[in-house]
Computed example of a mutant assay.
Amino acid sequence: MKEAVKKLEHLIAEKGLEGVLLFSPENLFYLTGYRGDEGVLLVEKRGGKLLVDGRYFTQAKEEAEGVEVGLLKSWTKGIAEELLSRSLKRVGVEAHSLTLRQYQRISEEAEGVELVPIGEDLEGLRARKGPDEVEAIKGAIAISEEALKEVLPLLKPGVKEIEIALELEFRMRRAGSEGVPFPPIVASGPRAALPHATPTEKQIGAGEPVIVDFGAR
């Protein structure tokens, strides 16, 4: 995570910013280790602060590393107050994780602070993997491969698509997967032509093609 923070600090300097606001759970986890569904991370050259509401405060205190954790009582107003209290004038924003109205309200309430959308720049943060990330990917692949080996013998006529999907997820979680990056896809017969099919109660027929798409994390 230290390497990730350094990348972000470099981006701040490169774009002539004084800080960056991040909102997506993926980036919050990537930069701090916090696994909650909601939160706001303000990163400056001098460090970072993770803001969450009361539902996530205890969790954030336990999980977040390398940043201060603060309580956010009012969403847009609280963010604006944090920016103003630090006398920031130009702040990058992960705008694609906000609604237009949220973006407008933060702009209105943080008068004098220029919010600069930097979504595309942030997407490159996680593109180049460090050694720890490479090892984590290898681990996820190993879990996925083992789960598939265990489930393949269950792929028989009469078994439901949803049953195969549940077996895959159960076996990956049992092996150490931290949830799944997306719900497993299992589709048979004509439904196998659907690239993002949702598993159903349909029974797999004899001689039917079956598409299976899944992964661990």
Rank of each mutant, 00 (worst) to 15 (best):
T32V: 05
K73W: 14
S177T: 03
Y30A: 10
E62C: 07
P181V: 05
A64M: 00
L83D: 07
L155W: 07
G119N: 11
V52C: 04
K129D: 02
L154T: 02
I204T: 01
E3W: 13
E68Q: 06
K156W: 04
V67D: 05
D37S: 14
L83V: 07
L155G: 04
R101H: 14
G112N: 10
A206V: 06
V210Y: 06
W75N: 09
V134A: 13
Q203K: 15
L155P: 03
L41H: 00
E208C: 00
E68G: 03
A175G: 02
E18T: 06
G47F: 01
L154F: 15
R128N: 12
V93F: 14
R173A: 08
K45T: 15
V113C: 03
K61S: 09
G124I: 05
V20I: 14
E81P: 06
E14H: 10
T99S: 04
S85E: 07
T58N: 11
V151I: 09
A165L: 04
E178V: 13
E163V: 03
A127E: 15
K156N: 08
K149L: 00
L88G: 02
F23C: 04
L51D: 07
E109M: 13
V116Q: 00
S97R: 05
G176D: 08
V159N: 04
P183S: 02
R217A: 15
L100F: 14
R191T: 12
I106H: 12
E81I: 04
P25M: 01
E120H: 10
K160H: 06
G66I: 02
K129F: 12
E163N: 01
H196L: 13
T198K: 10
H10E: 13
P190G: 08
P184T: 05
K6E: 15
K73Y: 14
A95G: 10
A64T: 00
A192D: 07
E82A: 15
S24T: 12
L51G: 11
Y103L: 12
A64C: 03
K89Q: 10
V43F: 06
T76I: 07
S97G: 07
V134Q: 10
S107T: 13
R55H: 09
H96R: 14
G70E: 12
G48Q: 01
G205S: 09
E68S: 08
L71F: 11
I106L: 10
K61H: 04
E108R: 10
K202R: 15
E123M: 11
Y34L: 05
G179K: 05
K156G: 08
K49F: 10
E161P: 03
A110L: 09
P190K: 10
